[in-house]
């Protein structure tokens, strides 16, 4: 990789200031960014590490809301006992990736096949940055694209606790990313279904399924629905039609296991 200047601030305010310079890039656990830089697909002039910032660590729960610091690793979320979100975190990548990779890094990168975006969108999470709070419905704006501005840092994420929830991931076995993943969360005021890995537009809510499940929360409620292959990802691992079918199958499994 090309060389850069490394900085490791200890507060969010210092990190935001360090990111103000041209071609500066925030570094979370680095499990995506460092491989990308080795391939010279990214060459920031400055890396600002977020791993030394105490206010981005730690998780807490009020019973209604789980708050996870932006710098918390997948391994720590997996060990937290947070139901479907912990299960999801424990199936990201491999143990060494989970020991470094962070929830803030995953959500900031918004890989179209990443797991956390599905959890955040289905949970109706709130992404809290140094500047503002962003509802998950407004946060994911497309492939590797989010509502984050330059030099804006995810300090924490609030996940409302559902009545029940489940995440089903059809794993691409080499990369362990989701070929398709579906997160279903049932709240007192309705069901939310978020799909990752399938659409060329990145994570999205399957609103037809939500309507059907609000009327009848069972896998049978999906029987009459069809998923269009339009705009589904096509690669050597799966055709658009294959992914469209997986969306329906995995949603049914998630509902059955909720």
């Amino acid at each position: 990789m090309y060389n850069f200047v490394f900085e490791k601030p200890t507060t969010v305010a210092e990190a935001v200031a360090a990111l103000a310079s041209e071609d500066a890039q925030a570094l979370g656990g680095g499990q995506t960014l460092l491989p990308t830089m080795k391939q010279r697909l990214a060459s920031p002039a400055k890396l600002v590490s977020l791993t030394g910032i105490a206010e981005m660590g730690g998780t807490s729960s009020t019973g209604d809301v789980i708050t996870i610091g932006g710098g918390v690793t997948h391994a720590d979320v997996a060990a937290g006992g947070y139901g479907a979100i912990s299960k999801l975190a424990g199936d990201i990548g491999d143990p060494t990736v989970r020991n470094r990779g962070t929830i803030g890094g995953s959500l900031a990168n918004n890989d179209p096949s990443a797991d956390y975006p599905a959890a955040a969108l289905a949970s109706g999470a709130t992404i809290k940055t140094n500047a503002r709070s962003i509802a998950a419905d407004d946060y994911f704006t497309g492939l590797f694209d989010t509502a984050l501005e330059d030099a804006e840092i995810i300090v924490s994420v609030d996940f409302p606790v559902p009545l029940s929830s489940n995440y089903q991931k059809f794993e691409q076995p080499a990369s362990r990313f989701a070929l398709v993943g579906v997160f279903v969360a049932k709240f007192a005021d309705g069901v939310r279904v978020a799909v990752t890995g399938a659409s060329e537009g990145g994570v999205y809510r399957w609103t037809e399924a939500e309507t059907a499940l609000n009327a009848n929360f069972s896998a049978d409620a999906l029987d009459g629905l069809s998923v269009s292959a339009d705009n589904m990802i096509s690669d050597l691992h799966g055709t658009p039609e294959y992914r469209a079918n997986l969306v329906k199958v995995l949603t049914g499994r998630a509902v059955a296991d909720c």
Binding site: F6, K8, G30, Q31, L34, P35, K38, Q39, L47, S49, T51, A75, D94, P95, T96, V97, N99, R100
Partner: peptide, 26 residues
């Protein structure tokens, strides 16, 4: 050297990490 194989696994503060996917300065 692409974060796939794990031959570079070492422990940092008791946690297994890929040594090729972490900066020395970290």
């Amino acid at each position: 050297d692409t974060s796939q194989c794990g031959a570079c696994t070492v422990h940092v503060n008791g946690k297994a990490v890929k040594g090729c996917t972490m900066l020395a300065l970290e």
